[in-house]
Amino acid sequence: MAANKEDVKLLAMVESPFVGRVDIALNLKGIQYKYEVENLKNKSELLLKSNPVYKKVPVLVHNEKSISESLVILEYIDETWTQNPILPSDPYKRALARFWSKFIDDKVIDAARKALYSHDEKEREKGAEEIDEALHLLENELKDKFFGGEEIGIVDITAVIIAYWLPIIQEAFGEKLFTSDKFPKLYNWSQDFNNHPIVKEHLPPRETLMIYYKGHYERHIASK
């Protein structure tokens, strides 16, 4: 990674896809930083001080200034360190990238939570329909190797939850929301993204996530 005298910390949790976004962006930029794992059941004073509103990770602490919420952090990273840009320079394309990044958070993640975690069967079915529709829209939007063209951009980084986390979570829950048969373009994109040298190096071990989300599933079943 490039030399960097600045003080950069990422308050993190290995299992979080939102942390994964920031981790990938920092490494694509070649930024040196400290990865500080937080225990959300026993939050550090630094986390509570750095993110007093939501009290959750990720938080980027740059020269003692803290930034919260993964999409906000991604834009901050791109504006602060201009090498290897993850947002387009063209204002219209920039706006589109912001739109699809927000779409992933507002539509895909919300629908996945509903489909996987709801105790109401009709609500789960509704969530499955919503994520199916959302993924089809993304499938149609994907025109190149990556959403960012030939290079990884902010939409690809935002969608790491689809590329890497969702296949693991759906397996842990015994569901099939994202498959290569239904979404061939998205599936091929996910393989290219996950196998990108920098991305691959900074994704959490599959086994770690599987254990974590199987625990989620067991608690979900026990709470019915």
Rank of each mutant, 00 (worst) to 15 (best):
L166K: 14
I86D: 06
K182R: 07
E201A: 04
E125G: 14
D90L: 10
I73L: 05
I104W: 03
D105L: 02
L74F: 14
M13S: 00
K49V: 00
Y92Q: 09
K41H: 00
D110I: 05
R219P: 12
F147C: 07
A128T: 11
V108T: 07
A172Y: 14
K5H: 13
E15G: 04
E38Q: 06
D156N: 13
D78F: 12
I67L: 11
L47W: 01
F183C: 08
E121K: 10
K41V: 01
K200R: 08
E38H: 02
P184Y: 15
K182W: 02
E69P: 09
A159D: 00
L87M: 14
E36A: 04
K122Q: 14
N51Y: 02
H202W: 08
T208L: 10
Y187G: 11
E69F: 06
V72C: 06
D110W: 07
N195R: 12
I157H: 09
R21N: 12
N51V: 01
S118G: 11
I73D: 08
E139I: 03
L209N: 03
S50R: 00
L87V: 13
G30A: 07
K200E: 04
A163S: 09
G148V: 05
D110M: 11
E150L: 05
D110R: 09
G149F: 14
V53K: 10
L177R: 11
V22Y: 02
L135M: 08
E129Q: 14
E133D: 04
V8L: 13
K49F: 01
A222H: 13
K182C: 08
L96Q: 14
W189R: 07
S70E: 04
K34Q: 10
I86S: 04
E15W: 15
K143H: 06
R219L: 10
E133I: 04
K200P: 02
E121H: 14
M1T: 11
F146C: 01
A134Y: 02
R113I: 09
P58N: 10
L166P: 07
D192C: 13
D106A: 09
I221M: 15
K29A: 05
